[in-house]
Nucleic acid binder design. Structure first.
Length: 446
RNA sequence: GGCCUCGUCGUCUAACGGUUAGGACGUUUGCUUUUCAAGCAAAGAACGCGGGUUCGACUCCCGCCGAGGUCACCA
C-alpha cells in the first residue's frame, strides 16, 4: 500500500515554525516510504483566511525544499458540496441531527449523535491511546446543513484523497476521537495516526510571538539557510540514533523513522540553530557563499553590497552565524577594507595604546620600526605570510602585545578585528604603509 | 478542574535490566600569530520523588509530584 500523508494548514496566519516542522515530518515519512504528501488548505472558516497566507506557506515549503502534491481541489472551501452530501448521509442514517438555531442565523447547527463509546487508536509515536467519548456530548459538526466544520471536512478529505497516515501536532490528539467517530459513522477506514510533540518556548510554554521569532519568514530574513533549519527542525524531537548531527534533506529522508520520535515537547534552542546555520555556512565554497550572500543582501536587506564584498567573504564566512550577522560584520569587522578608514576620522590615541601594555612613546617607536620592516617586504609578495615573517621576530623580541596591538589598531581602527598580518595582507602594501604612517603621525603630536 | 500525554546534564538527545550513563549546543579553562572569530584540547553538568519486581534497575509495575495538550457554531 502506497503511503500518503498530508499537510493541511489553515491559511490564517504566517507560516509557523512548528507548522513547518509538521510539514517536514510528513514529508520525511512519505518520502522514506516512497509515498507522497498532499497539501491542502483548510479554509472552512471564511472570515479568518487570507490568500497571502497561502502564498506564504507555499513559498516557505519551496524554500525549505519540501515537495508535495496538491490536493484537488486545493481548498476545502471548494469542496463544500461534497461535505454537504456526507452531512446528509449522516443525517439520514441518524448519526447526526439538526439541533438549535445557528448563532448567526441561517438554519440549525448539526450535531453528531454521540454513541458514547470508548475509542482506542494506536499511535505510531505513543502506542495505544484511549478516550471515553461520552464527555464529548453531541458535538457540532456543521454551522448549518450547508456549512461544515473542521472535523467533518478533515474526515471527508482524508478519506477521499486516500490518506494513509495522519501525522500532526500533539494539540490534535484529543480531536482524534471525534474524527474517528465520524469516520465510523460514514463507514470509512481509519488512517494510521502519529502525534508529534510540540515545540516549546524556553519556559516550556507553547511557543508564541512573545518568545521572539516564530514564523519561518523571520528566520529567513535573519539569514538562516534552509539546510540548517531543516536539519535542526528534524532533530528537534527525533534522532537517527548515532552521534552524527549534520544531515541533508535526502539523508534525513533515508534515516527517518517516525516511531523513534520523542514523546515529550522540545524546547526551541536558538543557540543551537545558530550553530547549525554557521556549520552549513562554513561548508559553502567561497563562490557559492558570495552568490547566496549577495542574493540575501539584495532581497532581505534591500541594499547594495559594499564594493569590497568579494574581499570580505572569507572573514565574514568564518564569523557570521547567519547572513544577517555576516551583513553586520561587513560594516564592523570588515570596515578596514573601506578605502577611507573610519571615514577619515583619526584613530584615538588611547585605543592605539590600550592593549599594548606600553606607553605612547614606546608604541610610537615600535610602529616606526614596523614601518621600516613592512617597507622591506616586496610589494608583489605582500602576503599575510610574508608580512608575518617580516614583523613577527621583532614583535616576539619586544613583547608581542606591545607591537601587534598598535599595528592591528592602526590598520583596522577597531578594538576587535582579524589579526594584523591578515589585515595587512588584505590591504596591500600601499594602504598598509599609509595607515601605519598615519598612526605614527598621530602619536608624534602628543 | 475533567480527560489525554509526557518526565536522562541548563537545552536537544543516546543507551532501554548489568555502561566510568555517550554525543551535540551552551558554559568555564587552556593552546594557537597574547584583540575578536574560527580551530584544537580539557573541565563541570543528568537518570523528578517514593515504593515494589529482580541477583541487579535510568530501563518493568504502582503511587506521588511536576510539565504540556485539550475541553469553540477555530482549525
Amino acid at each position: 500500500m502506497k503511503v500518503i500523508t498530508r499537510f493541511p494548514p489553515s491559511p490564517t496566519g504566517k507560516f509557523h515554525i512548528g507548522s513547518a516542522r509538521t510539514a517536514l515530518f510528513n514529508y520525511l515519512f512519505a518520502q522514506h516510504h516512497g509515498g507522497t504528501m498532499f497539501l491542502r488548505f483548510e479554509d472552512t472558516d471564511a472570515e479568518r483566511n487570507k490568500i497571502e497566507h497561502e502564498h506564504d506557506i507555499i513559498d516557505g515549503l519551496h524554500w525549505l525544499g519540501i515537495s508535495y502534491t496538491e490536493s484537488i481541489p486545493l481548498r476545502q472551501s471548494e469542496r463544500l458540496d461534497v461535505y454537504r452530501s456526507y452531512l446528509h448521509q449522516l443525517i439520514e442514517s441518524g448519526a447526526a441531527y439538526e439541533a438549535e438555531p445557528a448563532e448567526n442565523g441561517g438554519g440549525n447547527v448539526v450535531r453528531f449523535k454521540n454513541p458514547n463509546v470508548k475509542i482506542t487508536f494506536s499511535d505510531l509515536i505513543r502506542g495505544e491511546v484511549s478516550f471515553d467519548t461520552a464527555e464529548l456530548k453531541d458535538f457540532i459538526i456543521a454551522r448549518n446543513t450547508g456549512s461544515p466544520l473542521y472535523h467533518l471536512a478533515v474526515v471527508a478529505d482524508d478519506h477521499d484523497s486516500g490518506i494513509t497516515h495522519v501525522i500532526r501536532g500533539e494539540d490534535h490528539i484529543s480531536n482524534t476521537q471525534r474524527q474517528i467517530l465520524i469516520i465510523e459513522a460514514l463507514g470509512f477506514s481509519r488512517p494510521v495516526y502519529a502525534h508529534i510533540p510540540l515545540i516549546l518556548a524556553p519556559d516550556r510554554s507553547k511557543l508564541s510571538k512573545r518568545h521572539g521569532a516564530i514564523s519561518l519568514n523571520e528566520y529567513r530574513a535573519e539569514g538562516f539557510v534552509a539546510e540548517a533549519l531543516v536539519n535542526y527542525l528534524a532533530l528537534l524531537g527525533w534522532n537517527p540514533g548515532g552521534e552524527r548531527e549534520l544531515f541533508s534533506l535526502a539523508e534525513l529522508v533515508r534515516a527517518f523513522d517516525i516511531t523513534q520520535v520523542q514523546k515529550s515537547g522540545a524546547i526551541f534552542d536558538l543557540q543551537k540553530l545558530r550553530w547549525f546555520n554557521h556549520s552549513y555556512l562554513k561548508k559553502l565554497d567561497a563562490e557559492e557563499y558570495e552568490a547566496r550572500f549577495a542574493e540575501y543582501i539584495k532581497t532581505e536587506k534591500k541594499a547594495a553590497p559594499p564594493a569590497y564584498l568579494s574581499q570580505a567573504i572569507r572573514i565574514v564566512q568564518e564569523r557570521g552565524e547567519t547572513f544577517g550577522h555576516a551583513f553586520e560584520l561587513l560594516h564592523t569587522d570588515c570596515a578596514f577594507l573601506e578605502d577611507n578608514l573610519n571615514g577619515g576620522a583619526p584613530i584615538p590615541i588611547p585605543l592605539l595604546t590600550k592593549g599594548a601594555k606600553a606607553d605612547a612613546l614606546t608604541v610610537l617607536a615600535h610602529l616606526k620600526k614596523v614601518l621600516v620592516l613592512l617597507s622591506g617586504v616586496d610589494e608583489k609578495s605582500f602576503t599575510t605570510d610574508a608580512i608575518k615573517d617580516a614583523v613577527f621576530p621583532y614583535a616576539t623580541g619586544e613583547g608581542r602585545a606591545s607591537v601587534l596591538w598598535p599595528l592591528r589598531v592602526a590598520l583596522s581602527g577597531k578594538e576587535k578585528s582579524p589579526d594584523p598580518f591578515t589585515l595587512a595582507g588584505y590591504l596591500g602594501k600601499e594602504r598598509t604603509l599609509s595607515r601605519v604612517s598615519n598612526a605614527i603621525e598621530m602619536l608624534s603630536r602628543v
